[in-house]
């Protein structure tokens, strides 16, 4: 379910690190919780993001959710399809529904993120509430 090569946050974002750059999106769990996504607001290319700070919002029919950056870095790309097809976040949250690409400032920040296995355990723990 959750790709092994991704890392995950407690706020249900994923990040795929590739050298000095990374793609960021929201997890399958997050898109299911939100329901039909109808609007995504993302930063511009060039924006500087700080780890754990909100960089945009994902809105479903019934709810608004902030998206938090897993790491510090500069936005180098924004998914061009998302504005006109926000439903991609529902249909393919770990692929076509990616949100932004970052140039990482400090790779060591990824050390505190969860592996797929840890994230799945985290979800199971959360479900017991």
């Amino acid at each position: 379910m959750y790709p092994e090569e991704f890392l995950y946050t407690q706020d249900h974002e994923w990040i795929r690190v590739d050298g000095n750059t990374a793609s960021v999106g929201i997890t399958d769990h997050a898109q299911k919780e939100l329901g039909d996504i109808v609007f995504v607001e993302l930063p511009q290319v060039g924006a500087h993001l700080t780890a754990k700070e909100s960089f945009g919002t994902v809105e479903s029919v019934k709810a608004v959710a902030d998206i938090y950056s897993p790491v510090t870095g500069e936005v180098i790309a924004v998914n061009p399809k998302i504005q006109n097809a926000p439903e991609l976040v529902n249909s393919d949250p770990h692929g076509e529904g990616w949100l932004i690409q970052l140039e990482l400032k400090d790779r060591s920040e990824t050390d505190r993120l969860m592996s797929a296995e840890e994230y799945e355990a985290y979800l199971k723990g959360g479900a017991a509430h």
């Binding site: 329901g35 039909d36 109808v38 479903s60 029919v61 019934k62």
Partner: peptide
């Protein structure tokens, strides 16, 4: 129940 298959559908 707030939704089954999805609010839009």
């Amino acid at each position: 129940p707030v939704e089954y298959s999805g609010i839009i559908e």
